[in-house]
């Protein structure tokens, strides 16, 4: 049977997919707390922005995060933060299948007819990253687009749809 084709999530997904975040009167399926941010020292903030081809931050993207190591899922729209950031409270995952620790990221937005898959890796995992089969499938000069930046607040992971720093997206 033929796959059902994808269509864009459009600009008006918020009351359906992230209602509580956008203050609509409907219960959210999931939010951006994969763990309680006060859970302890292991809880970290993952945040970033999505940039279009003109370097403008996208205010109507939907980001989903899948942590396969801990089987946790989160979802956040970029339309409620004044700087168009997405924010997730989670823990740095352990390794799965011998890969470097990473989170799977799915990007949806108006102007994307089909969603994009990428991964977030951690900068301090130098050795594990160097041996990671997925990072090694990526041309070396583009690997850095998949590695988050450690900041005092947590990890920053900006997603560039186009341009010199265009994020690597996967066919999975």
């Amino acid at each position: 049977m033929r796959q059902t084709p994808s269509q864009t999530v459009g600009p008006y997904f918020a009351y359906g997919l992230t209602p509580e975040q956008y203050l609509y009167d409907f219960k959210s399926l999931v939010g951006n707390r994969l763990v309680d941010p006060l859970a302890g020292p292991e809880a970290v903030l993952i945040y970033g922005r999505v940039f279009d081809g003109q370097g403008q931050p996208v205010s109507d993207a939907l980001i989903e995060l899948w942590d396969a190591a801990n089987r946790r899922f989160g979802r956040f729209g970029t339309g409620t933060d004044p700087d168009c950031r997405f924010l997730f409270h989670t823990v740095k995952p352990g390794s799965v299948d011998g890969q470097a620790p990473h989170l799977s990221v799915i990007v949806f937005m108006r102007g994307q007819l089909i969603h994009s898959y990428t991964r977030l890796y951690f900068p301090e995992e130098t050795d594990a990253n160097a041996a990671d089969p997925v990072l090694n499938a990526v041309p070396e000069h583009r690997r850095q687009t998949l590695i988050a930046r450690r900041t005092p607040a947590g990890y920053e992971f900006d997603i560039y749809m186009q341009g010199e720093r265009e994020t690597v997206f996967f066919e999975i």
Binding site: Q54, A68, V96, Q99, S104, R110, P133, A137, M161, F170
Partner: peptide, 17 residues
């Protein structure tokens, strides 16, 4: 036009992820 990735998608081996 400003939101479509321009680089080819990278095919990756499937893992538990």
């Amino acid at each position: 036009v400003l939101r479509a990735p321009t680089q080819p998608l990278v095919v990756i081996p499937h893992s538990l992820s």
